[in-house]
Amino acid sequence: MCIGVPGQIQSIEGHQAKVEVCGVLRDVDLTLVGNVDEQGHSRLGQWVLVHVGFAMSMIDEEEARDTLAALQNMFEVEPDVGALLFGEER
């Protein structure tokens, strides 16, 4: 099963970004979505769906927060989901 995790872009350098997911900063490649939007504005502060270190798609904040809430509910019954949300160190 493949699960994308929502995160908010905190910084961008080229096509590499720091994306915050549940308080953890992750290195994410923006090549698939670009580092600017269709109007040429930076994606800084925007939300992305992250899978294995790549931003797979852009999502809006409401969808991101709803998905994070659902994943956190899953974590309560399936602790393995924690690695997706909080990183491998937990």
Rank of each mutant, 00 (worst) to 15 (best):
M1T: 00
M1I: 04
I3G: 04
G4L: 05
G4F: 04
V5R: 05
V5E: 00
Q10F: 06
S11G: 07
E13A: 11
E13V: 04
E13F: 08
H15E: 09
H15K: 02
Q16E: 06
A17E: 07
K18P: 04
V19Y: 00
V19N: 00
E20Q: 12
C22W: 12
C22G: 00
G23T: 09
G23D: 12
G23E: 14
L25R: 08
L25D: 14
R26L: 10
R26H: 08
R26M: 09
R26E: 09
D27F: 14
D27K: 14
V28Y: 03
D29F: 11
L30M: 06
T31N: 11
L32Q: 15
V33I: 13
V33P: 13
V33R: 03
G34E: 02
G34Q: 10
N35K: 05
N35F: 04
N35S: 15
N35W: 03
V36P: 00
D37C: 10
E38F: 09
E38M: 09
E38D: 15
Q39R: 09
Q39P: 00
G40P: 08
G40M: 06
H41D: 06
H41W: 06
H41Q: 15
S42D: 12
R43K: 11
R43M: 12
R43N: 12
R43T: 09
R43W: 06
L44R: 09
G45S: 15
L49S: 06
L49A: 07
L49P: 05
V50F: 06
V50Y: 08
H51M: 13
H51E: 14
H51W: 11
H51V: 11
F54C: 07
M56R: 10
M56V: 13
S57C: 08
S57W: 02
M58C: 13
M58W: 09
M58R: 05
M58S: 10
I59E: 05
E61P: 08
E61H: 04
E61M: 07
E62M: 03
E63S: 13
A64K: 01
A64W: 01
A64Q: 01
A64Y: 01
R65M: 10
R65S: 06
L68N: 06
A69C: 10
A69W: 02
A70K: 11
Q72I: 10
Q72H: 11
Q72L: 15
Q72S: 08
N73E: 11
E76I: 12
E76H: 04
V77W: 00
V77S: 12
E78V: 05
E78D: 15
P79L: 03
P79A: 07
D80P: 07
A83Y: 15
L84M: 10
L85N: 05
L85A: 00
F86K: 04
G87E: 02
G87I: 08
E88V: 10
E88Q: 07
E89M: 11
R90C: 05
